[in-house]
Design a binder for these strands. Structure first.
Length: 284
DNA sequence: CACTAAACCTGGGAGC
DNA sequence: TGCTCCCAGGTTTAGT
């Protein structure tokens, strides 16, 4: 379920553990996951980690970058001296690689110590792609992304997008071409927080409702970040620990449970093929 | 162009 | 124990 907060937490983890290290080897165990040639990245130093929407970019010292998308079940897990053996929340990844490990990077630090970064992905939907640094943003995925919260998404643009769409508001929030970073969990929770029915036609929202929803989006993403993301399915941090936001869901995953605001029954419906949770009593 | 539906995959849970 | 069926959701592609 990685959305903006989860991918940002992964970005920070990669920044902490792999920036400054040199790639000394790459083992690709599942060809379709890794698009590119391993010789393009072996020998290069990792310079920076960037994020655009739910996509990651690992910039290397030789003019290449590795772009990545973890989709729903991808994991980057670093195993080295810095992460070994003392985390109370560690989800035990000392047994890596396992059958879901598709790419293994061997890294070395300036004093020659070797560590490893594993890319695991149960459902194999994610991808890693080697591209020239200058071509990253012209790659189809990155090119298609709309503005994102906390960066270039403005209330003015948000009003314009909503006003010009006949879609229900919830699928619109998840449309990465219009706004990037929001997925199913945070779309559900932002609409709940702003008391808006997810089925409402986007263009029917009033100026006040739009302002309220805009603030709710920033709020839920911030809370998600604060708790280290939602480890509902397979998402974990680069050091192998779990996020906690799944313990603080407002309405996501609460089907047939009591609404925490009014006590009414939370309803689950399907919109554009995705599960939608809302309280029919307090979301109007 | 807008929009929908299926495809990509595996694991976990329900029902039998 | 083990079978079938369904569900999870972020793109990506095919189709209307």
């Amino acid at each position: 379920m990685p959305e903006l907060p989860e991918v940002e937490i992964i970005r920070r983890g990669l920044e902490k553990y792999i920036v400054g290290k040199t790639i000394v080897g790459v083992e690709v165990r599942l060809e379709k996951i890794f698009i590119g040639q391993t010789h393009q990245i072996v020998g290069a130093r990792i310079e920076a980690i960037r994020r655009f929407g739910k996509g990651l970019v690992i910039d290397l010292s030789n003019g290449y970058s590795i772009t990545a998308h973890v989709k729903m079940t991808g994991q980057f897990v670093y195993v080295g001296g810095e992460t070994q053996g003392f985390h109370p929340k560690l989800v035990t990844y000392t047994h890596l690689p396992d059958k879901h490990t598709h790419v293994i990077f061997s890294l070395s630090n300036s004093s020659g110590g070797v560590s490893r970064l594993f890319y695991n992905d149960i459902r194999q939907f994610g991808w890693l792609r080697v591209v020239r640094a200058e071509d990253v943003l012209s790659q189809a995925f990155f090119k298609s992304l709309g503005p994102e919260p906390f960066r270039d998404l403005t209330i003015k643009y948000f009003r314009k997008v909503l006003a010009s769409s006949n879609m229900p508001i919830k699928p619109l929030l998840m449309d990465q071409r219009k706004i990037s970073g929001i997925g199913n969990i945070y779309a559900n929770d932002a609409l709940y927080l702003s008391r808006i029915d997810p089925r409402r036609k986007s263009s029917s929202l009033t100026k006040v409702e739009i302002g309220c929803l805009f603030r709710a989006i920033l709020e839920v993403l911030e809370v998600g970040l604060k708790y280290g993301g939602a480890s509902e399915m397979n998402y974990i941090h680069v050091d192998g620990t779990q996020g906690e936001y799944q313990k603080h869901f407002l309405v996501y995953g609460q089907g047939d449970k009591a609404c925490r605001r009014c006590g009414g029954m939370v309803k689950k419906i399907k919109q554009a093929g995705r599960g939608t949770f809302y309280c029919p009593n307090c979301q109007i």
